[in-house]
Design a protein around this nucleic acid. Structure first.
Lengths: 89, 89
DNA sequence: TCTTATACCGGTATTAGTATCACGGTCATG
DNA sequence: CATGACCGTGATACTAATACCGGTATAAGA
């Protein structure tokens, strides 16, 4: 095996990451946030829906900047248990 | 065009990211830090040498945790970096 | 009804990340 | 010189991320 397939835990972590980003997006459109972050809307949609569970580092950084979030907060929130409260901005 | 190849700027950003991680590693070995972060030593080597300019988000998060760094600090330092730019000529 | 906007889904194409293996170089030791 | 540890490079294998396309569904508005 050369590259280990993503584990179920990693998929769940990706789902939490997507939920955090979607929560922070609020009522803005995917296209707007994606354009602000410099990624395609499809990519943002895949990340939000958890279908891209381990996006690139700078992709998350750009999205965090576009959403006004801290990457540390995103990382800890996605890695740890699901949040009861959104990362209030 | 389905997936844009990495631009020279992204490669340079990857080199700065690698330099930051190597700087934080200090005198510890690659194998030690890689094991602590849960990645292979070869992966850490590629990231440090800039041969993997856009690693996965959680890979950088794990390395940052193993090195005691903030992902926000890494992101900002790698994004806007005072790398010695010839640029003259 | 028709149009528009938004989001989700499936497929496809291409590049990149991750991991393993093998080999070579350097340096410090014996 | 020999050995070992560490770093580096190259090749190879396989999966995942990214992007573009077409289609579908829903809701709001003219």
């Amino acid at each position: 095996m050369v590259r280990t397939p993503l584990t179920p835990e990693e998929h769940e972590r990706g789902e939490r990451l997507g939920a955090i980003l979607r929560e922070a997006r609020g009522d803005r459109t995917m296209a707007e946030v994606a354009f602000a972050a410099g990624v395609s809307a499809e990519t943002l949609r895949k990340i939000e829906t958890g279908r891209a569970p381990t996006p690139a580092f700078f992709t998350v950084v750009a999205l965090a900047a576009a959403l006004g979030l801290s990457t540390d907060a995103i990382a800890s929130a996605a890695a740890a248990a699901p949040l009861r409260e959104p990362l209030s901005a």
